[in-house]
Design a protein around this nucleic acid. Structure first.
Lengths: 336, 336
DNA sequence: CTGAAAGCGCTTACAG
DNA sequence: CTGAAAGCGCTTACAG
């Protein structure tokens, strides 16, 4: 079980370690004949480059990291993250890179410690940052640490927020248009935490789309959990005056909570749509109209962008995949 | 942004690199006075050990790997895996170990290549193997590769299958007893792939529990997906003769498919329970009675076992957390 | 094209 | 207790 090294290969072939290294890495500096002998011998001996030796000499870890900050319980129930990871992992493994995963819960500052450690130890070459917050301290921290990063869902160079990959506007338009066409003229949007940049974007986009169509809109802030969303809906309905005829939820769990709240309030005639699709939306009763946002493709994009950034290549600006609205039972014509 | 090394610390303090190393690692061989100076200086300079240098000199990657082989689409929808990962990650990060994650889909052999590479490159110190199959080639492969491993859900040294951590018998008993007490005397169990060791265990355990109570039981094999499970239930109902009054499903997705199939066949009076709990069971209509199996704790156990194995420590045989039955609407008294 | 050598940043016997 | 040195397995200028 002793490790096969380039020294062994060099010895067997009677050449220098340098030649072996060049041959194995496809670098110039070896004759084609030598290269072939080396490659054949490496295959025969079952040689693999020692990851740590290579990392040390190249100062490259060949790994990228992701810190998930949400509540672990929620993480398990939101397919969004698994699908995102799947896309990221797919691109990384094709590139021979590893994915380091860390889940830190919601305690503030725990992610910071992870980044500091990763940077200090040289354990990852870069990171993908999720769930960008308003005044997010992470870009500055990562810059200070010298750790390359990509903000998931944001174009590089546009951290200011001018141009977003995840186009909340287009998504808002899909949702609002759908409700408008069903005759809804008064809706409410139950958002996620407004400390998250994309939730603010969504709220603003919904407001704008509604204004453009003469739809009245109310907003309520929740935190992606079932219970909070349930409570918000109960409040919206209980406040009495003028009820919305349709509700928009920023994720699938809250949408399903909305379903329950409507049933509890005997207000099943109210329509409802979700910003995230999942099996929850597919199998709830009634089934929930939702946006398919292709999180795996978004993950692929972020991973590809990070690799390009690490290679110093120019980012290739392929357009993100537009979302699709999956119409199900929960959205119906507004009652006349 | 130049890396701080022990050489810098040694130079600043006028001592040797060796002393610095000993001091930083809590090894004997330095005076207490020197140790304190070193530690203080390391903190001041913001020193972190170079992960790759340490890995190279200790031939230890301080990382463990997991290969997920299921269909990525299913992975996203089964909270089981995220919760499992959460438990694993928690233990690992407390121990300063990293988690390398790889998703390979269901193409046979792709996981093998990953293990070979990880072992060859020395990228991980060990792996946790999930979803053990009948005649699983992985234990042998990993042994040959010299890569330490833990079979998730199996006691070390009992790979033969004598003693399982995930006690399918106790779980089967919970489910069958519940149905028995509701008056069911004829049930059917829609299993996952019988190529998986634990699915065979479940089927056998259910058969045994039913026999002990004079319950008739049929079995149908599916593959954890909605469509297949839906088809199996349709067949079970269509076959005509004697219908079961209750169904057991080996995961949540299939249970929800069963719900739909029952509705489609206008057979809502048939009860149904799921071997896995999830939000799918919580928010379906009707809600589904399910086993809470605490996958995060199982993940913790496996991770802890692997770390102990790597350290050459004796495995501490704390008992696994027993499952709990969460009774919901889908299981009702059998029709007289 | 090829070889001898230094270097990446640690750890760890081995002399003093 | 302390220092000089070799070694982990690569990569990469630098001479021939």
């Amino acid at each position: 079980m002793a490790r096969v090294t380039i020294a062994h290969i060099a010895e067997r072939l009677g050449v220098s370690k340098a030649s072996v290294s060049y041959a194995l890495n496809g670098q110039p500096g070896v004759s084609e004949a030598t290269r072939q002998k080396v490659v054949a011998m490496a295959a025969e001996l079952g040689w693999h480059p020692s990851f740590s030796a290579r990392a040390l000499s190249r100062s490259r870890a060949d790994a990228i990291g992701m810190v998930l900050r949400r509540d672990p319980t929620l993480l398990g129930t939101e397919p969004y993250y698994m699908r995102l990871l799947e896309g990221v992992e797919d691109v990384l493994s094709d590139a021979g890179q590893s994915l380091l995963l860390r889940m830190v819960g919601t305690t503030p500052g725990r992610d910071t410690a992870v980044y500091e450690r990763w940077a200090g130890e040289g354990r990852v070459d870069g990171v993908i940052v999720l769930d960008r917050a308003i005044d997010d301290p992470r870009p500055e921290l990562l810059t200070r640490l010298g750790l390359p990063f990509v903000l998931h869902g944001v174009l590089p160079g546009n951290e200011g927020g001018a141009e977003r990959i995840e186009d909340q506007h287009r998504d808002a338009q899909l949702l609002v248009t759908h409700l408008f066409e069903l005759g809804h003229r008064h809706i409410a949007h139950v958002t996620g935490p407004l400390a998250l940049a994309h939730e603010v974007d969504r709220r603003d986009a919904v407001a704008q789309e509604c204004a453009a169509r003469g739809i009245e809109v109310d907003f309520a802030e929740a935190d992606y959990t079932f219970d909070t969303a349930h409570a918000r809906v109960a409040e919206l309905l209980g406040s009495g005056i003028r009820r919305p005829t349709a509700l928009v939820f920023s994720n699938d769990v809250m949408a399903v909570a909305g379903l329950r709240a409507l049933a509890d309030a005997d207000a099943r005639e109210i329509s409802l749509v979700s910003w995230d699709d999942s099996m929850l939306c597919q199998f709830s009763y009634p089934t929930v109209t939702a946006l398919e946002r292709y999180p795996d493709r978004a993950g692929r994009r972020s991973a590809a962008m990070l690799l390009e950034l690490l290679d110093g290549r120019k980012w290739s600006t392929a357009a993100p995949t537009p979302s699709t609205l999956v119409v199900r039972e929960s959205s119906r014509p507004a009652r006349p």
